[in-house]
Amino acid sequence: MTEVVAMASVKDGSSTARGPATFALKNVGQETLVVATTVLIFSLCAILVSGFFTLANISTLARSVSVLGILGVGMTVVVIGRGLDLSQVAVLAICAAWSLKLIGLGYGLAAGLAMGLGFAIAVGAFNGFAISIIGIPALFTTLASGTLVYGIGRWLMLDGIITYAPENQPLLLALGQGELLGIPIPLVIFAAVALVGHLVLSRTTAGRFVYAFGDNAEAARLTGVSVRVLTISQYAFSSAVAFLAGLVTAGSVASINTNVFSSSLIFDVLLIVVLGGVSLSGGRGSIASVLAGTALIGTLLNAMILLDVQGDVQNIVKSVVLLGAITLDRKLHPRDEETARQGDL
């Protein structure tokens, strides 16, 4: 019997070191997959669709998805922190429209913008408050606060569905229509927001805490992260970014239609975020993921517009692509029933 013991003790400690070199598709992240798909589709379009691979069209493409991308950056920060912000579109519409109205009433550009931004941040802070302090689920909080903000905006703050950009404010229009060194300004703003988002997430303590909180909220709390402040800030960021997206939208057509609230824009935002591989269960993903997702959706949409594909068919194509992406992801990383976290939506 002692021999058995001795033999066993020789093997002691080696079990954890053992581990086959894993490789191949299993290790390919969704982000890489999306980038690859984007490149593939982009190349196909460049060859097959006339008028696609021109500088002007690429710039149009970029411009048309920049609002989506800007919202996506805000959403990504919140989703990494294990949240969800469905109130973005309401903030986009109401805060931007209110700003336009205030400027139109003669408050001046800076004051108008500041008030709009202030309101947006207040909405975000309220979201964070309701989620972290009262304890209402994020999905529901932001759904309700979106409805509330839209309602208050339409009821008390704005005159009609559509708010027009005040005249003689070229700076405002430039946000949507201008160019900087030949690059459309919406794209510049998108890039700037993405860069800020990226830097905050990867280079600052707050960003690290967002990841920590999204990964394991209770562990973050026990480690000494002030999770409430963190939650409030991340929703405030998301709202502020939504306000910026609203200004870009308003600038491009010199007006903003609050009816965008009832469109499926927010779902498109979620689409690009998730497509890029940001996990809705938090802690995973990066701004690069959003760029990848935005690029894929942008390419698809642009090509389909050029091919004059009907809008509903576009939706179907878009959806099937997403479904394919998440199905493939699930096949590559199958759910382990014994270790899966409860409540992953």
């Binding site: 008028g51 149009t60 048309s64 239609n257 517009i305 050029l306």
Partner: peptide, 17 residues
């Protein structure tokens, strides 16, 4: 879908082509 922004995007793309 009666949306000015979408009209803007579509028109821009078509005018490129």
């Amino acid at each position: 879908n009666w949306d000015a922004t979408k009209a803007y995007d579509i028109t821009t793309a078509v005018l490129q082509q």
